[in-house]
């Protein structure tokens, strides 16, 4: 069925290396998205009209533009229009952070406005200062709601990294294609075995993470 090719030479290790590239890019992007998203979400909850309009436009762009289009704009467009040549991996990180920040910002804003006014008022009535109210009352509640949602973002980020092969990064899918190209003549069924393996690899990475997110969501809600 073509699975035997995986045990030849370093083929399986190459697939795993590709997976490593995908994971590295998604982890960096998630990290950036969480930090910037927190800032964006807090800014959006301030209800400043200028920030509201700007953030609405930003969120709508991310909402309707496919990530692939954004990748092309950054990777091909920027070098043509502005003359800056951004390496493929950096373009991927820029696009995924741009997308993730919007998602995260919206989540943070949703969490912030879902904390009832009474929480603030009670803390003030107990004589807590504004900073203490945030530190001991509001932020712990927000983090608890955010953790399952941000874990969910990680799996979506990992799944979206499969697109980066289109701008020439050798991640797991591209590595799989290269293995198929090299072994097509000796074992004709290689496409099935390799793509089934890639499918399973993605599943094995994403499934535990999404189960964890589901579990935390149930437990903490």
């Amino acid at each position: 069925m073509g699975f035997e090719v995986l045990f030849k030479g370093t083929n399986f290790i190459r697939l795993l290396e590709g997976l490593g590239v995908a994971l590295r890019i998604s982890m960096i992007s998630v990290g950036i998205s969480i930090v910037l998203g927190m800032i964006l979400g807090t800014l959006m909850s301030l209800k400043n009209p200028v920030i509201t309009v700007l953030s609405r436009i930003y969120l709508e762009i991310v909402h309707i533009m496919p990530q692939m289009v954004l990748l092309f704009i950054v990777f091909f467009g920027f070098s043509k229009v502005m003359g800056i040549n951004i390496p493929a991996e950096a373009s991927a990180i820029i696009v995924f952070s741009f997308w993730g920040t919007a998602e995260m910002g919206d989540l943070v804003r949703g969490c912030l406005i879902s904390i009832p006014m009474i929480q603030y008022e009670s803390s003030y009535a107990l004589g807590m200062r504004r900073s203490k109210t945030y530190l001991y009352v509001i932020i712990p509640q927000i983090i608890r709601r955010l953790i399952p949602l941000s874990i969910n973002l990680i799996t979506r980020m990992i799944k979206t990294t499969s697109l980066i092969m289109m701008i020439g990064i050798v991640e797991v899918l591209k590595a799989g294609q290269q293995i198929i190209e090299a072994n097509r003549r000796t074992s004709p069924h290689v496409a099935f075995g390799v793509f089934a393996t890639v499918f399973l690899l993605y599943f094995l990475v994403c499934w535990p993470i999404s189960q964890l997110s589901k579990y935390l969501e149930k437990r903490w809600s």
């Binding site: 899918l173 793509f195 089934a196 890639v198 993605y202 499934w207």
Partner: peptide
């Protein structure tokens, strides 16, 4: 838990 691109490659190739 798998990307569309991988599903398409699996179905198509």
């Amino acid at each position: 838990n798998t990307p569309l691109l991988v599903q398409l490659f699996f179905i198509y190739y």
